[in-house]
């Protein structure tokens, strides 16, 4: 059974764009419901690039005061894993036009995608485990946090595993990988991630105005 015939490339692309746009719109409306300005496009502007790289990509803000290394590392794994997976997917879309999935094992993009998914899984799962193993932390964790961390873990796990399986199992894992991605995109704007995105873009906007 060929994966491309079950899930045509066009269908997957349309769904990803659709859910991505929906996610962005939900983020925007959620933040605007707090009656505060939102600066999503300012983050990608040239003026704020240095602040963005220093504070967020190099984890200056997250890692600076956090004494709990495992927590910082897990956040970093999720961030870098997701970023790398996004880059790999776009590169694959641009280069590998004939056969999108399953990627051949010898393809370097396949190895990178697989490694990125594994990073997301390890990051998400260690964040989840950190909360599960501590009673008090379990008590104060809200449902939205459980939801995001669980979705991140299963999204990463299915993405890392599906290239190793053929036939029905591979196709099911591939489908689940996308189902979890779409669920994550729908759920994320209603979790504390919305606040983090807003605060992150606001701080970049503020800091780049001061340093300009």
């Amino acid at each position: 059974m060929d994966l491309n015939s079950v899930f045509p490339r066009e269908l997957v692309t349309v769904l990803v764009v659709l859910f991505g746009s929906l996610c962005f719109a939900l983020f925007y409306f959620r933040v605007r419901s707090w009656k505060v300005p939102f600066y999503p496009f300012y983050v990608v502007s040239q003026r704020s690039f240095k602040v963005f790289v220093e504070n967020f990509l190099l984890l200056k803000r997250v890692g600076l005061w956090c004494e709990e290394r495992a927590h910082t590392l897990s956040r970093a794994l999720v961030l870098y894993g997701f970023f790398a997976l996004f880059v790999c997917s776009v590169a694959n879309y641009a280069l590998n036009t004939s056969a999108l999935t399953p990627l051949k094992p010898q393809n370097p993009l396949a190895i990178l995608s697989d490694a990125s998914s594994a990073l997301v899984f390890f990051g998400g799962f260690s964040l989840l485990l950190r909360r599960l193993l501590n009673k008090r932390r379990r008590e104060v964790t809200h449902a939205d946090v459980w939801c995001v961390q669980a979705l991140l873990s299963v999204f990463g796990a299915t993405g890392a595993l599906y290239p190793f399986f053929g036939g029905f199992v591979g196709i099911t894992l591939y489908a689940l990988h996308f189902v979890f991605l779409f669920l994550l995109l729908l759920v994320a704007p209603f979790t504390e991630l919305a606040f983090l995105v807003w605060k992150g873009s606001f701080l970049i906007y503020k800091e780049s105005r001061v340093s300009a």
């Binding site: 707090w34 104060v140 504390e192 606040f195």
Partner: peptide
């Protein structure tokens, strides 16, 4: 506030100071 959540774990009254800081950030901007 870096949002690590240690305060919320330490609070004996379930105040969730991390959440309060988030709420204050939004309200000050408003």
């Amino acid at each position: 506030c870096s949002g690590c959540g240690r305060c919320s774990v330490a609070c004996p009254r379930d105040v969730d100071p991390k959440g309060v800081m988030s709420a204050l950030s939004i309200l000050f901007q408003r």
